[in-house]
Amino acid sequence: MDKIIVTILGLAGIAFTYWFFLMRKGKEITVSDSVDILVEGGYSPEIISIEKGKTIKLNFIRKDPSNCLEEVVLSDFGVRKKLPLNEKITIEITPQKKGEFTFSCGMNMFHGKIIVK
């Protein structure tokens, strides 16, 4: 009996994990000139949609002391920046190509996306 309960709870746990982490859809935000990105357990907003050829200011403010998040990397734009705690660090980008470009923390555990339209 207890084995059946454990099995059912286990399967439910797996399904929940799948749903919770892997079926998540981020909110997309359209940015025209500048956006504040809160760095705390991830990036919010995490999907930023911008126009090609326009210069955008991304203001990262890190509130999370986890050393995973202490750097932000926009590899497609050649940017790797340290984010000191509680400070606004501005990164300017001018995308010349359309497409989706991810940004991540230094260890590549947390991700955000820049969609260039």
Binding site: F20, F21, G41, E46, D64, S66, C68, M107, M109, F110
Partner: peptide, 17 residues
């Protein structure tokens, strides 16, 4: 530190180390 990093990550429905 592990909790401090986990709690906000869970709020974002992400997970890490």
């Amino acid at each position: 530190g592990f909790y401090r990093a986990t709690i906000p990550a869970l709020k974002h429905r992400t997970a890490n180390m």
